[in-house]
Structures are given as C-alpha cells and as structure tokens.
Design a binder for these strands. Structure first.
Length: 429
RNA sequence: GUGAAUGUAGCUUAAUGGCAAAGCCCCAGACCGUGAAUCUGGUAGAUAUCGGUUCGAGUCCGAUUGUUCACCCCA
C-alpha cells in the first residue's frame, strides 16, 4: 500500500465505470445545450493570474486562498478556478464581441485549493454556458429554462431554483452600505465569521447557516428595496418569462454569489441530495465584466454546472446509465483460426459500422474463451474452430437467451449479423 | 482554513493486546469443442506511513497522510 503512488489530494481518477456515467451524461448535456444554439469552445487551463484577479475579485476566497498560481519565468500564471473569466478573455482576445453576439459553451476541469469533501474537489469539472451581447431578460430566462429542460429530460427532481437580482453596481453599493450600517448596529449579535465578513463581503452574512444568526439576518435590509428601476423591470421580465415556461422558482433575497462580477440576475439550482454541497448549477448576469477585462461594454450572462455533483444528483434521483456491451465476441480455437478470426473481426468492423466486435485476445482454452465471451456481456459469441474453418462457416451463439446456436457461412456473416442486431437493437439494458 | 470520524487483499468485511481470516473477484481443473449453476484447488496483504508504550501492537498513544462529515466556501 505504501509503495503505491497516490493521486494528489482532492484529485480523482475517473475509472471506466464512472467514466461511462460521465460520457453518457455529458452527451445528454451537450444535446440540450446545442439545441439552444450554443457553440462549443475549448480553452486553455492556464491564464495570466490577472485575468482571475480582475474578474472574480481581489477579496474573494477563490482569489485570496484557493488558486493554484505559479511563476513562469516572470509571468504569474494560474490554473483556472472557473470558466467565465477565460471565456470572456477569449472573446476579447479574438474580437468575438465586436458588434456580435455570442452563445458559447465549454466543459472541462477547474482547480481550487479547497479542503476536499464529497462533491468538492481540488480538480473538479464544470459545464459552462455563456451568452454575450444580450441584455435580456429573455436570454436570462432561456438559460434557466435550458437547465430546467436538462433536469426534466433526465428525471432529476430533487432540485429547486432560487433567483434574485443584485441590481446594477450603483444600487448594489447603496445596498451594501445600508447592510453594513445595519449589521454594525447589531454587531454584538454577530458571530465571528460574520464580523469578519462585515469588512470583506457583507452580502455573504445573509448566507450564514448559523441558526443563532437567523433573527439578525431576517431583520436586515432587503436588496429588492434598493434595486434601481431598470433592474427591477428586468427582474419582472425574467419572472414573467419563467412563468410562461412553467419553471417554478423561489425568490431568495439573500442569494448572493461569491464572485464579484455578477450584476442583476443571479440564480442557483440547489438540491437536498448532496449534503453540504447543495449548489449543482448556478450563474448570473455579469454586464460589467467584459469591459472590465478590456473589451467594449457588453452585457452577458451564464451559468456553470458541476459535473461531479450533477452525476451524483442524477444517481441520487434514481437515474440509470445504459450499459455499453459488445455485440459480438469472437472466439477462435485451433490451428489457423486466430489469423482468420483476426481478419474476420476487421471485416465486420468495416462492414458493420458502429457494431462492437470484441475478439478474444491472448488465446486460452475453448472453455476459458467462452467464459470471457460470457463475461464480456456480448449479445452473441462467434465461434471459429478448425472444423468451421475448413467448412467456411462459423458458429453464432446467442449468449443472452435460449436460442440455439446457428452455423453461418462466413460470406453471409455480415448480412446475418446486421439483420439480427438491427432487429433487437445493439444496446440492451 | 476550523472541529470531528475513519483507513485490514482489487472489492466487502472479520480478528478479548497473543499464529492476520472469510466471502466476492481473478486463474485453473472436474468437463472431450461451448459460457452462466455446482464442486475442487490456486494466486494475492510488508493491517495507509513514521515513531512510541509493551515480553508481545491490526488493536493503545503521538505525528504524518488519504478519505469522509459539519463549518467555511462554492459548481
């Protein structure tokens, strides 16, 4: 055990069984996202540290203590802790926002140096969807509806939507001041964390889970009362569209996000199925970010979904992953059969596109080859022995039913298989 | 980052401080050219790591490390 190398803390190997779940679910997500006209981009994992400092915010936990940052010959580089900043940077770099709107998505690993826990890892994975150049609220609603469609499609029901509006920066500043004033007035009732946040991020005090704090929090001023008129109208527009789409939501006036760049619409899909890691998919509008990073003023909104949490939630909701198994397993025993079987397998793969043909590798007795065929869960075993070879035929044995083994002329094999496999589908439960 | 629990074969789990076990998995055979059932046999652990207490430590103590739970944070 001691000699076995270990993964770096908080980093996971995704082994075949789990990877199969990921593959299946990632494909589902892509199908939904692309149905809304979003196009995929693939971005570097490394950015100049400055990109994240300026977008996420200097005083956020992510920037202050969770980033993997290193010096690269005088350049400070950072493994991306989230995708939005990189997406915006890429758009600016390539002029994607010059009189253009963009609907983009990406998926991949993110890195945050947090203390690991189930559903929280130092390398984790996110789907990220961003719409730039749209000032909403129709696009706000569409992005939320898109995620709702995904849950519905996959039978994910232990999830609910919370929305809020943070207003424009000016109204947010006014609100923040009011909040600080209120909390300072009741400072003797605040817990240690909240007193600390008073200086750093007073909005987060609203998020406190400390039961002793609930009364204090309940009496705090509410963001909605500080919203500027345009933001309030925007929010009403979003609500109306969500109603039209039949998406249920809850207005959570205490919903704030941990990244500084958000403005107006923020939302979070939360679940009770994953313990403390209850946010599965969350996002919001960031109308000031593109300009802040050096682009033209461009409104934008997006969301990110944690793949690990998404997969866990799917399973918690009873979701199943379709098994992928071979269609045929080719057994070859006896003089000269290996060579013929090897060539035959290639012929089948060429003639029957997409059919999964597994050949027995490494020899073995007839019995052990048949055992492997059974264990592979293939639909059929193809049996090529000396007798079959001399007759130009091959045995086709169903492994998943009581049907008799058939003898097929080698020349007819491809067409017979094609018929049999299309008749019952190449995938079963 | 704070507090707590936990770590024994690939997996699941045994072992009053006294010889480290079992089931599953895997391999082979019983069975001749036919898988699954049954039976027989076989492979495999420096009990996470380092140190301490003890005649003797998987078991007790300390540190380290991984994982997990809550906080924190967030996807």
């Amino acid at each position: 055990m001691s000699k076995k190398p270990q993964t770096v803390r908080g980093m996971n190997d995704i082994l075949p069984e789990v990877a199969a779940s990921w593959q299946y679910l990632e494909k589902e997500v892509e199908t939904v996202i692309e149905a809304y006209g979003y196009r995929q981009v693939r971005l570097p994992l490394l950015e100049h540290t400055e990109v994240f400092r300026r977008s996420i915010g200097e005083v956020t936990d992510i920037v202050e203590k969770e980033m993997y940052t290193f010096d690269d010959d005088g350049d400070s580089l950072t493994l991306r802790p989230e995708a939005t900043a990189s997406m915006v940077r890429a758009g600016i770099t390539h002029g994607l926002f010059h009189n253009q709107k963009q609907k983009l998505w990406t998926v991949g690993p993110m890195f945050r140096r947090e203390r690991p826990q189930a559903g929280r890892y130092r390398q984790f994975h996110q789907f990220d969807v961003e719409a730039m150049g749209y000032d909403g609220p129709d696009v706000d609603a569409e992005l939320i509806v898109m995620s709702a469609r995904l849950w519905a499609r996959l039978g994910i029901d232990r999830i609910r939507l919370e929305i809020n509006s943070l207003g424009v920066p000016e109204s947010r500043v006014a609100y923040r001041d009011a909040l600080v004033e209120y909390f300072n007035g009741v400072k003797n009732q605040l817990d240690e964390d909240s007193i600390r946040r008073l200086d750093t991020n007073p909005l987060r005090i609203l998020d406190s889970k400390n039961p002793d704090m609930q009364d204090v929090v309940a009496g705090a001023p509410v963001m909605m009362d500080y919203l500027d008129e345009a933001s309030a109208e925007h929010f009403e527009g979003l609500r109306a569209l969500l109603d039209v789409a039949g998406v249920e939501y809850e207005i959570n006036p205490r919903l704030v996000r941990g990244l500084d760049y958000y403005s107006r619409t923020v939302f979070e899909w939360v679940t009770d199925a994953l313990g403390a890691q209850n946010a599965v998919c969350a996002g919001g509008r960031y109308d000031g970010l593109i300009e802040k990073l050096g682009g033209r003023p461009t409104p934008a909104i997006g969301w990110a979904m944690g793949v690990e949490r998404f997969v866990a939630l799917y399973e918690a909701c009873g979701g199943k992953i379709p098994e992928v198994r071979p269609d045929v397993y080719l057994v070859a025993v006896g003089e000269g059969t290996l060579e013929r079987a090897f060539a035959l397998a290639e012929e089948l793969r060429a003639d029957l596109d997409g059919v999964r043909v597994e050949t027995n590798l490494g020899g073995g007795s007839f019995k052990s080859q048949m055992k492997r065929a059974d264990k592979s869960a293939a639909t059929y075993a193809l049996i090529l022995g000396e007798q079959e070879l001399s007759e130009g035929r091959i045995g086709l044995k169903p492994l998943r039913g009581n049907d008799e083994q058939e003898s097929i002329a080698l020349g007819d094999l491809a067409s017979v298989l094609k018929q049999k496999l299309s008749g019952q589908g190449s995938q079963q439960e």
